[in-house]
């Protein structure tokens, strides 16, 4: 089960990476980035997850033997932060892409850009 989860999340991440490298369209690259992000987040959550463990919420029943068998709460916190960050990045990127589109009228990074830099 663990192996499957790890593998699937890593595969998701690799799909994202592949998308980033292969795509030319800025929006598609951004989507690929988000896929990569999701993959990585899944990986982190999986790291903290355990089938037998309890929810890491301290309730009244402290006498339970599973008191030491909580799911590690830290990865979840990490993933939460990471998702927020991902949201920020995506927003900024979208705004920039919009600006870029308004300025240049296309959605790909043209190599013609550097030609303004003198003779070449």
């Amino acid at each position: 089960m663990f192996t499957i989860l790890y593998t699937l999340s890593l595969v998701l991440a690799l799909i994202g990476i592949f998308g980033m490298i292969s795509q030319k369209n800025l929006i598609k690259i951004l989507i690929s980035l988000n896929i990569l992000e999701t993959g990585v987040n899944l990986f982190l959550v999986t790291a903290g997850w355990s089938a037998e463990a309890n929810v890491p919420i301290i309730t009244g029943k402290l006498g339970l033997p599973s008191a030491v068998n909580f799911v590690d709460p830290l990865p979840q916190a990490l993933v939460l932060t990471s998702i927020v960050i991902g949201l920020g990045v995506t927003t900024v990127a979208l705004a920039l892409i919009l600006r870029y589109y308004r300025k240049t009228g296309n959605l790909t990074l043209e190599p013609s850009e550097f030609q303004s830099g003198g003779e070449r």
Binding site: M20, I21, T108, L109, P111, E113, F114
Partner: peptide, 15 residues
């Protein structure tokens, strides 16, 4: 400065 397929290829290599 070219649209950087080269560089991404290098990145892939690193990975």
């Amino acid at each position: 400065t070219d649209h950087n397929n080269w560089g991404y290829a290098a990145l892939l290599g690193l990975l």
